[in-house]
Simulated assay, not measured.
Amino acid sequence: MELKFGNHRSKDLQNDWNEYWEGNFVFEVLSELEKNEKENINYDVELNILQDMLIEELNINNTY
């Protein structure tokens, strides 16, 4: 939604979106974290760890 309205927090991604248009992007769920009601989990930390793992696994230059 942020990209469509032109106000995404990543200026580089927004610029690419504006230049190449929506049809040239693919968004996929690569992994999911399961919610655990029994433990006190910091999901912000867990998501950052998962992101780092995926970036390394996919050999992505993390500029966003």
Rank of each mutant, 00 (worst) to 15 (best):
E2N: 14
E2S: 15
L3E: 02
K4V: 02
K4T: 05
K4F: 03
K4A: 05
F5I: 11
F5Y: 11
G6H: 08
N7F: 07
N7M: 02
N7C: 09
H8W: 04
H8Q: 02
H8I: 01
H8T: 00
R9M: 12
K11L: 06
K11N: 07
D12A: 11
L13C: 00
L13W: 00
N15T: 13
N15E: 12
N15C: 09
D16N: 12
D16L: 14
D16I: 05
D16T: 08
D16E: 13
W17V: 01
W17E: 00
W17T: 00
W17N: 01
N18D: 04
N18G: 05
N18I: 09
N18A: 05
N18F: 07
N18E: 10
E19V: 12
E19Q: 15
E19F: 10
E19L: 08
E19N: 14
E19R: 12
Y20M: 10
Y20R: 15
Y20H: 13
W21C: 14
W21L: 14
E22L: 05
G23W: 10
G23F: 09
G23A: 13
N24S: 08
N24L: 04
N24Q: 13
N24F: 07
F25N: 01
F25P: 01
V26Y: 15
V26R: 15
F27Y: 15
F27W: 14
F27N: 05
F27A: 14
V29L: 06
V29S: 04
V29M: 03
L30V: 07
L30F: 09
L30P: 00
S31R: 12
S31V: 08
E32C: 05
E32H: 04
L33N: 08
L33D: 01
L33E: 06
L33M: 10
L33A: 03
E34K: 09
E34G: 06
E34L: 03
E34P: 03
K35G: 13
K35M: 13
K35H: 15
N36A: 04
N36S: 09
N36E: 11
E37F: 11
E37L: 11
E37M: 10
E39R: 13
N40Q: 12
N42D: 13
N42I: 08
Y43G: 02
Y43A: 00
D44F: 09
V45L: 12
V45G: 04
E46L: 04
E46H: 04
E46G: 02
E46K: 12
E46M: 03
L47T: 06
L47Y: 09
L47E: 01
L47C: 06
N48R: 09
N48Q: 10
N48W: 03
N48Y: 05
I49Y: 11
L50K: 04
L50R: 04
L50P: 00
L50F: 04
Q51E: 07
D52K: 10
D52H: 08
D52S: 09
M53L: 13
M53E: 14
M53P: 00
M53N: 14
M53K: 15
M53W: 10
L54A: 03
I55Y: 01
I55Q: 02
I55M: 02
I55P: 00
E56G: 05
E56N: 07
E57R: 13
E57F: 08
E57C: 03
E57T: 09
E57W: 03
L58P: 00
L58G: 02
L58K: 09
L58S: 06
N59H: 11
N59G: 07
I60A: 01
I60S: 02
I60W: 01
